[in-house]
């Protein structure tokens, strides 16, 4: 991202906390589980392509859940697909995050009433961190969702125990 290069004239020492360093590293390389479910996937692809270029945020599509940090559920989750999504989510290593993209995966979208085969919201099978509204959301909206997720990660702590 070019945050640090050319900021220092000679080699130097930077002092930071472990949390900040680790979180900065994690949020700058959110590798994405690559699969599209319906029309929203087109916008997700557009967000990855050169005009919007999600790779500048460190989002690289990976074809296996083992290498992924974030799952972007982009599109209609059918009941047949829901069990597969659950399994893919279980196969991702922690810490893992989920962005629900579009009305369909948020709440069933246009199929909310008569979609006998559609799961009315992917949060019925896996936990969701960020919901991106829209049908479909524009790539800017997806990138905004991604930045929201980065904010969330920035405020997490890996070393301190959370108060119960």
């Amino acid at each position: 991202m070019g945050l640090l290069d050319q900021k220092f004239e000679s080699s130097n020492v930077v002092i930071t906390t472990m949390d900040d360093l680790l979180n900065w590293a994690r949020l700058s390389s959110l590798w994405q589980m690559q699969f599209g479910l319906a029309c929203c996937a087109i916008e997700m692809m557009a967000a990855s392509a050169s005009n919007f270029d999600m790779m500048r945020f460190g989002v690289i599509p990976r074809a296996t859940p083992r290498q992924c940090d974030v799952m972007i559920v982009s599109g209609t989750v059918t009941l047949k697909m829901a069990s597969r999504i659950k399994r893919l989510y279980d196969q991702m290593s922690e810490p893992r995050y989920v962005i629900s993209m579009g009305s369909c995966s948020n709440c069933g979208g246009p199929y909310w009433e008569h979609g006998y085969h559609v799961l009315k919201g992917v949060d019925r099978v896996i936990p969701v961190d960020v919901y991106v509204p829209g049908c479909p959301p524009r790539p800017e909206a997806l990138i905004e969702g991604l930045i929201k997720l980065q904010e969330k990660i920035r405020n997490e702590s890996l070393v301190q125990k959370k108060a119960v």
Binding site: L79, K80, A82, C107, W112, Y116, L119, K120
Partner: peptide, 28 residues
């Protein structure tokens, strides 16, 4: 198209959407 364990034929006029499928709630 549908999963092999699906019950019923959804495009029939008298089809009733199931309440649950494999433990997942179907209606909104």
């Amino acid at each position: 198209l549908l999963p092999y364990d699906w019950e019923g034929y959804p495009l029939r006029k008298d089809y009733q959407t199931p309440e649950y499928y494999n433990g997942m709630k179907v209606p909104y």
